[in-house]
């Protein structure tokens, strides 16, 4: 299969995942965000050529996180969305702590190859985590600030404007800062990679609109029967 078809299939998969997890409720969305940071770390260096551009496959899994936080904000309020951002910032540190502790052990004679694969796959993970979480935290801060500013400027109307304008602007900042800091010193074409990543983010941001309406229609399990599962009601 060509990379382009795979790209579209992967995009649909990546966008339907938050919707599927949102059916389970708030907790499942947190788990989705935590899980996606686990997969992001190893695949950031994995790039492929799609429609003539060099694209890191991680962007396809990173961008739907905005859908997840949007669903959290829409259904459970701003505080729940902040929880999602916090999971996104903290979970990668758990991953690198674990993986790099594992790498400290001397491998048994049979598993040197596995050891080398782990160290190769996760070789950039510390750098990616530190830069990624810093930039992501800052851009989320910026996002809330722009959203608030536009809200004051235009009033209650134009929800779509403040929603899209704030996200499109902050993801531009996020992509350029992340790729510039992460690979700027190694690759000459880092700006092209950053802009391609931004283009993917924009595509994901536009394509996610039907998915957020779909998620809005679903009744999450934790809202249906608050007491039936033996939970403490929160």
């Amino acid at each position: 299969m060509s990379n382009e078809i795979l790209f579209i299939a992967f995009l649909l998969l990546a966008l339907s995942l938050p919707v599927l997890f949102s059916k389970g409720g708030k907790m499942w969305l947190y788990i989705y965000i935590g899980m996606s940071t686990c997969i992001l770390l190893p695949i950031v260096p994995l790039t492929a050529e799609v429609f003539g551009y060099t694209v890191s496959l991680s962007t396809l899994l990173w961008a739907p996180n905005f859908l997840a936080t949007d669903i959290l904000a829409e259904k459970y309020g701003k505080k729940a969305a902040h929880g999602g951002v916090l999971v996104h910032v903290l979970a990668p540190y758990l991953v690198i702590l674990l993986v790099h502790s594992v790498l400290l052990f001397t491998p048994a004679s049979g598993s040197t190859q596995i050891h080398q694969s782990i160290s190769e796959v996760y070789q950039y993970s510390i750098k990616i985590t530190v830069i990624g979480t810093l930039v992501y935290g800052m851009s989320q801060f910026l996002d809330i600030w722009i959203y608030d500013y536009l809200h004051k400027l235009t009033g209650e109307k134009f929800l779509w404007l403040r929603n899209n304008a704030s996200t499109l602007f902050t993801t531009l900042f996020n992509n350029i800062a992340f790729w510039g800091l992460a690979v700027g010193s190694v690759l000459d074409n880092w700006l092209a990679i950053a802009l391609a990543a931004y283009a993917v983010t924009v595509v994901v941001a536009i394509c996610d609109t039907p998915f957020i309406y779909l998620a809005k229609k679903l009744t999450p399990l934790d809202m249906k029967q608050p007491n039936n599962l033996g939970d403490t009601v929160r």
């Binding site: 998969l13 994995l46 790039t47 492929a48 496959l57 899994l61």
Partner: peptide
């Protein structure tokens, strides 16, 4: 599923090495 899906892509030449390591892992 996501890891296997990401490995289906044909990687750029400079990412081939990391692709192989990831496939093994």
């Amino acid at each position: 599923t996501c890891a296997q899906a990401a490995l289906l892509f044909k990687p750029e030449p400079f990412a081939q090495e990391i692709h192989n390591a990831m496939a093994l892992l």
